[in-house]
Design a protein around this nucleic acid. Structure first.
Length: 919
DNA sequence: AAATCGACGTA
DNA sequence: CGTACGTCGATTTG
């Protein structure tokens, strides 16, 4: 569905059917929509072999197809901006100044899009001196005069002023395919002004992207309030003198801006176009031409088929073969009780993949309430595990546990935990569509099934014949929520199995299948066990700790209030700024958006700058508050079994690391004494003897040594002596035993800095020396470790050429910004390119180690188990009598996880709690 | 109620 | 003006 706010019928003629009623005119803002498409689809994924970017073309065309199909316009035109200045620039030279430059992959796509529109018989318009909006406003006026219903697809809010009874704007929401229907009611609901007043509101508020400042401190709310009171901007201006408060003064001070905005916002409705709106019907289209163009762009057949289908429909051409243009065809069957085994045997040949989808009660875990299986032909079953015939249950559990029947799931870790909770097992998992998509695009934010279907199959997560199916069910009198839920889950199972196929193909091309099968999928099972296990927490101890931290917070608050002479919120950066810089007149710190920073660095600096005790108190307050909230958070997450069960996310980080959430057990304090006390709350559980921690020493630096093949670095790691001191000894040309703490610290900072893409400026900042000194230090460093510099440079060059970085195991991270014209973006991407292979390889290695450790524990019949992973550290719970075996096994498998040019050192500690298990 | 920001904990 | 995260409270926006 296009709309999210209102029904399409609002602008459609009521019950007139096709061919009757008013003509419908669709007007598209070409640049605006193409730009949205450009940013909605990853540029690096849409490039043909000639290097032409196609993401905007693809996205725009999909959107157009959807609009044609769902809105059934009788007339259509696409308006384009031109590069030369418009009358708005003449009025206001700064108009749209300060916009970041157009991405280089964009402009060439506009030409191709216009070519495509020509081929499918859609009018393209652009007029010198005017923007697309003005053309659209003009056509809207004329269309309305001709008795048409007008639809405007545009991402420019200025078009809202055109909205009316017969004119709706389709404004892109979260995604390009999610167009929000801006009817008069929707505009009024969103902005509290009628559409014809929208430009007045925009004039008051201003428009950042057009570089049109509005009245400071006046947002849509205030502006709407004023307009409601005075009726219009003109009336408001006439009464500007009587408006009180700061906002009123600001209005008077910025009246010129507002009046200028008003002139610039108003769209021209009298642009000379030379064509008549009635002639903009959808007419002849050139099938061969479109085929040739799409071949050149290397577009898959799906988009082409959909385009041809909708064009044929428009042209009343019934000869075209029907294509399934969206959705999935689910055939949900209900085997009679006791016959599930027969169905499975008949429907699912051994070796053929099945999509499996589960639904459970509650948010995390809970009981399975439904389970659906679907095969690619579309046939599916949906079962309620609690209502199963005993024979069926036996057949199902045997099938689930049989590795000869390959399965694909979306989010296998949760499924495993849910199935295990029922005492069932799952084997033969060949893909997890979320993880597969993550390996393809680790930077992706959203891995929902529906999103991936759209992205990789070009289809919505809906049933192809949903309306028909619904109708049948309703006629039979069974159309209740249960049936909908069953059909939906079957749909998910089917979508998963179809999606897995597409992801497999792509993953094969990108050499990521091995990573999926031999690393991430088996790891998901290990993580499921770790999450199920959780880590025992000492609740009494945590409560005491909380009370203690809370008391310290209260004391800091009291001291601060006494010092300042009144009460204020120490937790509010805003109030802090007010007090520190305005009232106390302390020196200004680094500028941030909202004024001056009050972060820990700045407070420490202030403490040194002045005699005022406040910064010190604030630092202590920050510290203790942070500790208190950490402890509070932990207490809240202790489960009924007295343990904390974090969730390890496997598809979140761009580099390949895991992340931990609810609660995050990867950021439990360790650096300070007070912080470390929290680690004492993580204790060994009943039935176990010790906690054991094992971590990699300097794994990232070892990886840098390995990847750079720098002999001196490699040698330093082989010698086994203090690494940083050895490097410092070389850089400063002094014997190792004369390296002092200061020199070692500098080199340590540089060692790690290099792995992060550090600049001389950044190093200077970090070490408190001048950039020049930092540069000298770096030069000296590289004179001894030249291959490191060569490696770091080569990484970026290669990533720029290939579009991605790769880890030791071939995990890729795509970095299109390496070719950005924007320096800041480009340099950011370069630092990411430097860091990703190092951080990502470390992630690969510890994941390998986890698989090996987990397998070794199980194969040796040990009861000890892994509980946590903290990037370079594993925490295990050791069963009685197993300590020596486990210690040896963990060290062996962690250090042998991957052969490198340097040894992988692992240090181990043991104790009754996480703190004491440190080493 | 949800989104955003500043701040800060970890590797 | 080194990387990668998640969470909190305050604040803003809807």
């Amino acid at each position: 569905m296009v709309n999210t706010q209102a029904t399409p019928e609002q602008t459609r003629p009521a019950e007139t059917g096709e061919g009757g009623g008013r003509p419908r005119l669709l007007l598209v803002d070409g640049h605006s929509m193409a730009f949205r498409a450009f940013y909605a689809l990853p540029a690096e994924k849409f490039v043909n072999s000639a290097g032409q970017a196609t993401n905007a073309i693809y996205g725009f065309t999909s959107m157009l197809v959807k609009l044609l199909r769902e809105e059934q316009p009788t007339h259509i035109a696409v308006a384009w901006d031109r590069s030369e200045p418009t009358f708005r620039h003449e009025e206001y030279a700064e108009y749209k100044a300060g916009r970041s430059e157009t991405p280089p992959e964009f402009p060439s796509q506009v030409g191709l899009l216009q070519e495509l529109l020509g081929l499918i018989g859609v009018t393209s318009l652009s007029v010198p001196g005017y923007e697309a909006d003005d053309i659209i406003a003009t056509l809207t006026t004329r269309g309305l005069a001709e008795g048409m219903d007008v639809l405007i697809a545009s991402g420019d809010r200025d078009t809202f002023q055109l909205v009316g009874e017969h004119c709706t704007v389709l404004y892109p929401g979260r995604s390009l395919s999610d167009l929000i229907r801006m009817t008069p009611e929707a505009v009024e609901a969103k902005y509290a002004v009628p559409p014809e007043r929208y430009c007045d509101l925009a004039a008051l508020v201003g428009e950042k992207s057009d570089n049109l400042p509005g009245v400071p401190g006046v947002g849509p709310k205030t502006a709407a309030k004023w307009l409601a009171k005075y009726g219009s901007l003109d009336a408001l201006v006439a009464h500007a003198h009587e408006i009180g408060g700061k906002a009123g003064q600001n209005l008077r001070d910025h009246l010129d801006d507002v009046l200028r905005n008003q002139r610039l916002n108003r769209l021209a409705t009298d642009v000379e176009l030379g064509v008549d709106v009635t002639g903009m019907t959808l007419g002849h289209w050139n099938r061969d031409g479109v085929n040739l163009l799409f071949d050149n762009l290397e577009f898959a057949s799906t988009l082409r088929d959909r385009l041809f289908a909708v064009l044929s429909e428009q042209a009343g051409d019934d000869s075209a073969e029907p294509v399934q243009d969206e959705g999935f065809s689910v055939e949900l069957v209900d085997p009679a009780p006791g016959t599930l085994g027969d169905w499975l045997a008949a429907e699912i040949a051994a070796g053929a993949r099945t999509g499996v989808a589960l639904e459970w009660s509650g948010e995390r875990g809970g009981d399975i309430i439904r389970l659906a299986l679907a095969v690619p032909s579309g046939r599916a079953v949906c079962l309620d595990p609690t209502q199963l015939d005993p024979a069926d249950e036996a057949a199902l559990t045997a099938w689930l546990a049989d590795p000869a029947y390959p399965k694909v799931l979306h989010g296998v870790k949760w499924a495993l935990r849910a199935l295990w909770a029922r005492g069932w097992t799952l084997d033969g998992v060949e893909s997890d569509t979320a993880i597969a998509a993550y390996l393809l695009e680790p930077g992706r934010r959203n891995f929902e099934l529906a999103t991936l279907c759209l992205r990789y199959l070009g289809r919505e997560l809906t049933e192809h014949n949903a309306e028909g199916a619904q109708l049948t069910l309703d006629l039979e009198g069974t159309g209740d929520d249960q049936d909908t839920a069953r059909r939906e889950l079957a749909l998910r199972a089917l979508a998963t199995v179809e999606l897995a196929l597409a992801l497999d193909a792509e993953l094969t091309r990108r050499e990521g299948l091995d990573l999926l099968h031999n690393l991430e999928l088996p790891l998901a099972e290990v993580l499921a066990r770790m999450e199920d296990a959780g880590i025992a927490a000492d609740l009494t101890y945590l409560r005491d700790l909380e009370a203690e931290f809370a008391a310290a917070v209260r004391q800091a608050v009291d001291e601060a209030h006494r010092l300042v002479g009144r009460e204020f919120n120490l937790g509010s950066p805003k109030q802090l700024q007010q007090i520190l810089f305005d009232e106390l007149g302390l020196p200004k710190t680094k500028r941030i958006k909202t004024g001056y920073t009050t972060d820990a660095d700045a407070l420490a600096w202030l403490a040194a700058q002045t005699d005022n005790e406040l910064p010190v108190i604030l630092l202590r307050h920050r510290d203790q508050t942070k500790l208190r909230t950490t402890v509070e958070g932990l207490i809240k997450t202790i489960a009924e079994d007295g343990r904390i069960h974090t969730t390890f996310h496997q598809t979140v980080t761009a580099t390949g690391r895991l992340s931990s959430a609810e609660p995050n057990l990867q950021n439990i304090p360790v650096r300070t004494d007070a912080g470390r006390r929290i680690r004492r709350a993580f204790v060994v559980g009943e039935g176990y003897e010790q906690l054991l921690t094992a971590d990699y020493s300097q794994i990232e630096l070892r990886i840098m040594a390995h990847l750079s093949e720098d002999e001196a670095l490699i040698e330093a790691f082989h010698s086994g002596f203090d690494f940083h001191a050895q490097i410092a000894s070389r850089v400063f040309r002094i014997p190792v035993d004369q390296v002092d703490g200061e020199a070692r610290a500098r080199i340590k900072a540089m060692n790690y800095g290099l792995a992060y893409g550090l600049s001389d400026y950044g190093l200077a900042q970090q070490l408190g020396i001048s950039p020049k000194e930092a540069r000298v230090l770096m030069e000296e460093y590289f004179s001894h470790f030249g291959k490191v510099r060569d490696y770091l440079e080569a990484v970026v060059v290669r990533a720029r050429r290939e579009g991605y970085t790769a880890t030791i195991l071939g995990r890729r991270r795509y970095l299109p910004d390496l070719n950005s014209d924007n320096r800041q973006r480009r340099e950011m991407a370069e630092r990411m390119a430097l860091n990703a292979p190092i951080q990502g390889s470390a992630a690969d290695i510890i994941k390998l180690a986890m698989l090996r450790v987990d397998r070794a524990l199980r194969e040796n019949g040990l009861a000890s188990r892994m509980l946590l992973q903290v990037h370079d550290e594993l925490v295990l719970e050791v069963a009685p009598g197993e300590l020596d075996t486990v210690r040896e096994l963990v060290v062996e498998h962690m250090s042998q996880a991957q052969q490198l040019r340097v040894p992988l050192a692992v240090s181990v500690g043991v104790g009754p709690n996480w703190h004491d298990a440190a080493h």
